[in-house]
């Protein structure tokens, strides 16, 4: 049994196909989605989606701003930004970090600031991991 996985950005459909497993960075923790997973809705934090294809080949994609939906038809990840990790360079990430920092300083109330700060933390963690 395979898991049908779709990765969609506002501009186009980036990935559609049957895979063995997908690991997604949920807001409240990473999740590994295997075929037959119970229906779930989750928001995503900036991070890396790891797709394990049938046969074991892995593909890593950086996503930011989005959510994931699991239903009996499969897993759908909607992301505002999705870039394969291979194409992600330090420069691009530095830009993302800079944007996030601006968001933090622009935040009007505590709630938005907390969210922006969380975003920034995730991005910085990713930056140091790369």
């Amino acid at each position: 049994m395979a898991l049908h996985f779709e990765l969609v950005s506002p501009e186009r459909l980036l990935f559609s196909g049957d895979v063995a497993e997908v690991d997604i960075p949920g807001t409240e923790g990473d999740m590994g989605i295997l075929p037959g997973h119970a229906p779930v809705l989750s928001t995503l934090r900036p991070g890396v989606v790891t797709v394990t294809k049938e046969g074991g080949a892995k593909e890593r994609i950086f996503v930011r701003g989005g959510f994931a939906e699991v239903n009996p038809q499969g897993l759908t990840v909607l992301a505002e930004v999705a870039v394969p990790v291979a194409e992600l360079n330090a420069e691009r990430l530095a830009q993302e970090v800079k944007d996030a920092q601006e968001d933090v300083s622009d935040a009007q109330d505590d709630e938005t600031r907390r969210r922006a700060q969380e975003n920034l933390d995730h991005l910085q963690a990713l930056q140091s991991a790369l």
């Binding site: 119970a38 229906p39 779930v40 989750s42 009996p72 038809q73």
Partner: peptide, 29 residues
């Protein structure tokens, strides 16, 4: 709505928070 076969969605964080996150995005979309 997709057919869930009787199951209900597990939401993480809760539905209200997801909705609060999605609605502004929906405007842009």
């Amino acid at each position: 709505t997709p057919d869930l076969g009787g199951a209900i969605y597990d939401s993480e964080p809760d539905e209200g928070e997801i909705l609060a996150d999605l609605l502004p995005r929906n405007i842009a979309v």
